[in-house]
Design a binder for these strands. Structure first.
Lengths: 154, 154
DNA sequence: CGCACCTTTTACGTTTACGTCAATTCTATA
DNA sequence: TATAGAATTGACGTAAACGTAAAAGGTGCG
């Protein structure tokens, strides 16, 4: 039941990376390499963001998958949803100029940048309010620990 | 079935605020006044953050509830979870100095402030990366719209 | 041969703060 | 009295990105 497709049955035996230029890596190595969990890789695949080859039922990731994963992680870092990332990646066409893809990416990026700036403003606001409240609380605490010592027993 | 508690049966007939110093407001007015939904007020009550009086089954909010709601909204604004807000409010004792409450609030606030600052750093980082990517994409787009005009028609 | 280790699929659980019906009741007013 | 406008208590739904079993298959090694 090995179902290895004739053209790409080149996977090594099993475990340790044999030599430098590995063609395929399995999910464990892939996960370690990019600091994600197995679940995450399978999840991304389930969402159509990754499409590793298979050796039977075992996933085999290539350079292409690594490049895609890097993009996913970058997208996540800048706050895109996986859905957005997928939309952008789905427009990729290796045979064209990808103008549409780039335009979409730029459009989404501008909106995301605006969101990030708004978020930053909210956070700054929150920091201000919180600092403010904290100084008030500190004031109240210092008033409570300074005076009442006279009445009660030490 | 009016079950109005003898000491506090002072609610007006029903709708429009009669005079200036209203004692009780119903949920609709309360919601409007603070820009929240009815669902939110009921939810907060369900979570033990609010405790309005009742006229039969109708909730009646007093000055005390308004003060509590203000605190909740402030807490939410600075990023506390409702659970945190509740923990802090639960320590309030109108007969004491509330030192424990203030200390807890200060402690939680310091941690929250740290979280906010970390978030801000992450956002700044994201903004940087995103701006970076955007300029690259713009560059790619300008390259695609400048040269290829020679080969194709129109 | 058996064990440890890697991998697979399936599928429910988690988190937070409500949204969104649905069915019902109450009330004041025209 | 009919109706429109509040209000009530359920109770399921939502979003996002995975976490966490569970049960089972494959395999190189000592």
């Amino acid at each position: 039941m090995k179902l290895v497709s004739p053209g790409e049955a080149a996977a090594n035996t099993n475990d340790v990376p044999a030599e430098a230029g590995e063609e395929f890596v399995r999910i464990g190595e892939m996960a370690k390499k990019y600091g994600v969990t197995l679940r995450t890789l399978r999840f991304y695949e389930d969402k159509g963001l990754l499409n590793p080859h298979r050796d039977g039922s075992t996933r085999l990731y290539t350079r292409r998958d690594k490049a895609r994963l890097k993009l996913i992680l970058l997208g996540r870092k800048v706050g895109f949803s996986l859905r957005d990332v997928k939309q952008m990646m789905d427009l990729y066409d290796p045979t064209g100029t990808n103008t549409k893809q780039l335009r979409l990416a730029l459009d989404k990026s501008e909106k995301q940048l605006a969101r990030l700036q708004k978020q930053r403003a909210l956070i700054d606001d929150a920091i201000g309010e919180l600092s403010n409240s904290m100084s008030i609380v500190r004031q109240m605490l210092s008033e409570r620990t300074a005076a009442p010592q006279a009445s009660a027993a030490g």
